[in-house]
């Protein structure tokens, strides 16, 4: 089953506590300005205020992969994780323009332009992909952002598992609290 992120917009809404962003930076050691996940807020201060953590959603048909001129972006066969090979990335920024979610991130590079692309790896690789001996560092696909998400808003894992979890959660709320929900509106 492909690995996916899922956002619960129904019950456990995001509080923008920043745990995901902070743990990502701690765990993956991304430099300043590179956020593999970041929280977007819209309608701040309005009754419709919504916060959304936006990691890479590891699309089934990733636009970034299609537009990458050097095939640096690839989707792993075994679990569908979209990764970037920094050896072949030339930092053109085309993926940034093509991604609907703003997942590709760039550190400040030469001439004040962007550096190589970095993106969410489902925690399988840190920012410095290689160790001292030049071997690729590989870790379990267990995103720390979803593990620390204080509200459980951000779900990660196999697509069928997390969708079942969300379905259960929403159903529970709808069946137990529906009258009370009406009371307040």
């Amino acid at each position: 089953m492909p690995k996916k992120f899922l956002l619960d917009m129904y019950v456990n809404r995001c509080l923008r506590c920043g745990g995901c962003m902070a743990v990502c930076k701690t765990h993956n050691r991304t430099p300043e300005g590179v956020h593999r996940i970041r929280v977007i807020t819209f309608d701040e201060g309005e009754p419709t205020e919504t916060n959304m953590p936006m990691p890479c959603l590891h699309c089934n048909e990733p636009p970034c992969m299609y537009v990458c001129p050097t095939k640096a972006i690839y989707k792993r066969k075994e679990d569908g994780i979209v990764l970037v090979n920094k050896d072949t990335c030339i930092g053109c920024g085309y993926c940034l323009m093509a991604c609907p979610f703003g997942a590709p991130q760039f550190e400040k590079g030469t001439f004040g332009n962007r550096g190589k692309m970095d993106k969410c790896t489902f925690c399988v690789e840190p920012y410095e992909q290689k160790d001292e001996q030049g071997r690729l560092i590989q870790r379990e696909p267990k995103p720390r952002c979803a593990m620390v998400c204080a509200t459980g808003h951000l779900l990660a894992g196999d697509a069928d598992e997390i969708s079942a979890k969300l379905r259960e959660r929403v159903g529970y709320r709808m069946s137990r609290g529906v009258e009370k929900t009406f009371l307040t509106f």
């Binding site: 506590c17 995901c20 902070a22 930076k25 701690t26 593990m147 620390v148 204080a150 459980g152």
Partner: peptide, 25 residues
Amino acid sequence: VDIEPWENHPINRGRLCSKGASIPA
């Protein structure tokens, strides 16, 4: 060098906010 979520902790089950998640720094 890093932190990991303590998933058995009865109060937070590994969950953290930005302050807790950035303690190594």
